Simulated scan of single mutants.
Amino acid sequence: MQPSVGERRSQSFDRVLSSMCTEPHPAARAAAEAFLASNPGDPATYDAVAELEAEAVDLLGELAGLAEPHGYVTSGGTEANVQAVHAARNLAESDDPNVVAPESAHFSFTKAAELLGVELRTVPTDGDHRADVDAVAAAVDADTALVVGVAGSTEYGRVDPIPALADLASDAGSRLHVDAAWGGFHLPFSGHDWGFDDAAVDSLTVDPHKVGRAVVPAGGLLARDARTLDALAVETPYLETPTQASLTGTRSGAGVAAAAAALEELWPDGYRAEYERAIDLTEWLAVELGGRGYPVVGPELPLVAVDLPDALFEAVRGEGWKLAGTGTGEARIVVMPHVDRGTLESFLDALDRLAGTVGV
């Protein structure tokens, strides 16, 4: 007989090395519970959570270098990226718009292109897994509605040359969108040029439910000006609110409240401390793995990609370690807030023990 939902326990994060989500901050948990039944999709009715969403957007704008941000708390990075493509398509002058993105772009852009009927032109990255500006330039034409840059790629944690992509997009009369869904909470402290104050970025994805430590779901879409959201708005005659720019109708008040609470609690000092902790731990792990003879892609943000033998990769997963791979087969280890030195030492011990059993 299966246990009831109430008898089941949530999954532990103890051996989760592949996920870009993490344990929520206690303040985020408490805020989420207080707003479980609120719907930010109708802010005129649910005005308390609407005020929290405005606070969250303002703080996300501060994080991303935008003094007067426009945007909303999405269900996650996929919705934010889809909406960026959606707005670009609606604002485009071309009848046959296209989107140009590096091959490192998240699969949500494939979803967006299929849903919205736009052509997605995927171009190669350079030898260090960043967008190749020359390749992007060769793919852009008069019908390009959006150029995509990635700031903290899912596979390698790489940051594209955002200012160069912005210049290219501007010359082409295109919009620029930056996907910083995971990287955005690290990047303010890393020295990279990535946000609104570094380049002519039109829209940007950044997710509080990742390193921001809000509960799931709590993504974020930010825009430089109001016309981005205006391009997404539809009339909602049966709600108290006359229009709605979000992709979903009913939205999670819990996610909105958690995002506001986490940002209020941790921005900027808490996130700075987490970045410093995580990048130090990442660099230590890269040295440890390299010293064991496993090829490592040098980390840029708190993510290590390492080429493990297939048999060892599967053996470690068989002991309950949650690992995922890149498109070319390296294991990805994401150093999230729940991943500490003890966790990684246990992981390395497992690698050492299992290497002999699989003949490595």
Rank of each mutant, 00 (worst) to 15 (best):
L312E: 08
F313C: 03
F313W: 13
A315R: 14
V316K: 08
V316N: 08
R317M: 13
R317P: 01
G318N: 10
E319T: 15
E319Q: 14
G320K: 10
G320T: 10
K322D: 14
K322A: 12
L323Y: 09
L323W: 10
A324D: 13
A324R: 06
A324Q: 07
G325Q: 14
G325I: 07
G325A: 10
G325M: 03
T326Y: 02
G327E: 09
T328G: 01
T328K: 08
T328D: 14
E330C: 05
A331W: 12
A331M: 13
A331P: 10
R332K: 13
R332E: 15
I333D: 02
I333S: 01
I333G: 01
V334H: 03
V335N: 01
M336F: 04
M336I: 04
M336W: 03
H338C: 02
H338K: 04
H338E: 08
V339D: 00
V339I: 10
D340M: 05
R341Y: 03
R341A: 09
R341G: 00
T343K: 08
L344P: 02
L344D: 02
E345M: 06
E345A: 14
S346A: 15
S346G: 01
F347C: 01
L348S: 05
D349H: 10
D349G: 11
A350P: 00
D352P: 03
D352I: 14
L354F: 08
L354I: 12
L354S: 05
L354D: 12
L354K: 11
